[in-house]
Design a protein around this nucleic acid. Sequence first.
DNA 1: CTTTATTATTAAAACGATTAAACCTATATT
DNA 2: AATATAGGTTTAATCGTTTTAATAATAAAG
Lengths: 342, 342
Amino acid sequence: MKKKVVLKDIAKEVGVSIATVSYVLSNGKDGRIGKEVTAKIKKVAKELDYQPNLIAKSLKSGKTNTIGLIVTDLSNPFYAHIARIIEDEVTQLGYTLMVSSSDEKAEKSWNLIKFLMHRQVDGFIIVPTAESEDQIEHLKEKKIPFVLIDRYFPEIPSHHVVVDNYTSAYKVVENLIQTGNTKIGILTQGNSLSHMKERTRGAIAAMEKHHLTINPTWLKEINFDSVEEDIAKGIEDLLTGDDPVTAIFFASNSLAIPGIKKVNHLGLKVPTDITIASFDQGEAFDLYYSPITYVHQPLSDLGKEAVHILTTEIASPGSGYQQVNLNAKMVVKESSRKDLIF
Amino acid sequence: MKKKVVLKDIAKEVGVSIATVSYVLSNGKDGRIGKEVTAKIKKVAKELDYQPNLIAKSLKSGKTNTIGLIVTDLSNPFYAHIARIIEDEVTQLGYTLMVSSSDEKAEKSWNLIKFLMHRQVDGFIIVPTAESEDQIEHLKEKKIPFVLIDRYFPEIPSHHVVVDNYTSAYKVVENLIQTGNTKIGILTQGNSLSHMKERTRGAIAAMEKHHLTINPTWLKEINFDSVEEDIAKGIEDLLTGDDPVTAIFFASNSLAIPGIKKVNHLGLKVPTDITIASFDQGEAFDLYYSPITYVHQPLSDLGKEAVHILTTEIASPGSGYQQVNLNAKMVVKESSRKDLIF
DNA sequence: CTTTATTATTAAAACGATTAAACCTATATT
DNA sequence: AATATAGGTTTAATCGTTTTAATAATAAAG
C-alpha cells in the first residue's frame, strides 16, 4: 500500500526544504525560487503524482472552501433543481457543496447545522424550517455567513432570496376568479412560514379585491406528516361540503401532485368539473391531459443570487443584509382556462 | 469578533494541559483523568460552548468522515431520489455527503473525482460516465474505496450495485408484445454504458424470443446533448417511416418525459394510437391520462446497499468485490394495456 | 524507609500544509 | 575593503487536535 505523496517526499527527493517545495507549488507566480530548482520540483511533483491535501491547507488557512446547503427534502424535484443550480454555481467558484435534508424538522436542521459547523463550512444556504429561529440567531452570533432561500424570518434581519409570493399568489388566484370561479379552495402547508403566509395572504387579497365572500373552510392546511390523508380528506371536504368550491389553488408542488391524483381518483375532469392552479413547476404539470396553470419560480436566479450573496459575505463580512425578492412568472394553461375549452 | 473556542482555551481556564482536556472530551469513557478535573473540564467546555474542529481531527486521523457522491445530474428526479436515500443512510452513520453532477461528461467527472480526492473524502459512490474507465482504475490504484451504481464496467472488477437491466427490459418489452405489438421502437441513450447495453439486449431478446423480425431503424440512440431534437426526430421517424411501429419503449425516464410530450404534441392517443412503456419511475407517469407502464427500480435498496458496501470497505479494505444485482418490479398500467381499453 | 505499583497528568511529536523572518551567498555600491 | 542589496533557500512557528511515552505524585508492599 503506497503512502500518499506529501511535500516532504518531494523535498527529500529534490534535496530542498519543504518550504521551498511549498513556495514553488503554491505560489508558482512568485518566482522567488531559482529556475532550475523550480523546474526540478515541478518535475518530481509530477513524477510522484503529488496531490495537495486540502484538509491540511484548510486547517492552516481557516477556510474550507466548502458550503453547506440545507433543503427540506432533496428528493423533492423543486429542491433538487435548486441544489443543482447552486452546485454548479459554487463549483465554478472553487467550492464544494455539502447537501442535507431537514424534512421540515427543526431538530434535524439543528443537527445538520451543528455538524456542518464542526466541519468548518465557510457558509450556509438554508431553506429554514418552522421554529428554527434560534438556529439562525446562533449562526449570526457565531458570525457564520449564511443566506436563507425560499423562506425567511421577517423579524430576524438576514440575507435572503425569495420570490414575491404575495403577488404571485394574488395573480394566480385572480386568474381563477377571472375564469369564472367564485368559490376557491386553497391548500397550504407549513403556514407559520413566511412563504406560505404570503401565498395565503395574496390569495385572500385577490378574493377580497374581487368582492368574493370567503368561507374559512375553504382554507385547508396540510400537515407535513400526513400529506396523502390530509389532502384526500381536504379535497373531499372542499368538493362535497355545504358550500363546495369550483376551483383549487395548490400552494406548492408537493401539494399539487398528490392533490391532482386525488382529483383523478374522484373522476373529476379538469377544467370542466374543477379548475386547478398551483405554485411551483413540475414535469407532471405539462404532461397532464389538461396542463396545469402554475407559478414558475425563477430557480436559476434564485440559486445564483444566493450563491453570489453568500460568497460576497464570505469574502467581506458584515456589509449590510441583502434581501432579494424575485418576480415569478405565471404560466396559464388549460387547467384554468375554461374560456378556451368551452 | 469572538474567536472560536479551542482546547487550549479550556485548558487555560481550568489550569490543566491541552492533553488532559482532549482526553476528557473525546475519551469520556476512559476515566483516566481524575473525577474533579473531569467534571471541571466538562463544565468549562459547556460554558465556553466549545465546538470541536473536525478539520483538525481529520488531519490527525486521516479520516474525514466524508463521502463523495457523483451522479450525472442531481436535477434529474431519479438521481435526486437516490441522492436523498444515500444522504439519509450516510448521515445516520456519521458521514457527510458531498454531491456533484458530472452531466455524463468524463472530463467533468474526472475533475470532480480529483477535487474530492484532494478533499480527502473517505470514499466515493459513483454513477460512472462513458469513457471514465481510467478514473475508476485511478481510484483502484490509489486504494480509494468506491462503489459504482446504476452502471459499471464489466471488464473492471469493482464493487457495484445495479438492477437487473436485462431481465427488466426483457419483461417490459415482452409485455408490449403480449398486448399485440409486433413492431416496437426503442429509445436509448449512452449506449456504450452497461445499463443501456443490457436494456437494449433484453429488449431485443424479448423480440427474438417471440420471433419478431427486428428492423434496425427501430433502435434510436438519443444524444445527451440534443435530447429534445433527437427525440422529436426519432419518434417522427418511428411513426412515419416505411415500417412504422405501434409501440415505443423508453429506456430511461429522461427519455420518456420529453418523448411523451412529443407523442402528445403529435396528437396521438395512448394506448390506442401508440403503446408506451418506460424504464424508471416518475411522478408524471402516474398522472398521465393513460398512466405509463414502467420498470420500478428499487432505489431504496440500491442506495442502502451501496452505502453499506462502501462503509464496509472503508472499515476493512480489500476483502473482495461486492457486485449486487437487484430485481426491479414491472408496473403495468394503462399505457400498455390495450386489452383493458378495448 | 526504600522499592514497586498505581494513578493522574503532561510534554512533545505528529498530521500536511503555509508563511514570516532569518540566513546565507554573491554581486553591486561607495 | 567595507557595506549594502538582492536573490535564493531554510528555519521554525502555526493551525487544532490526538496520542505515545514520560513524569510526578501517591499508595502499597517489602
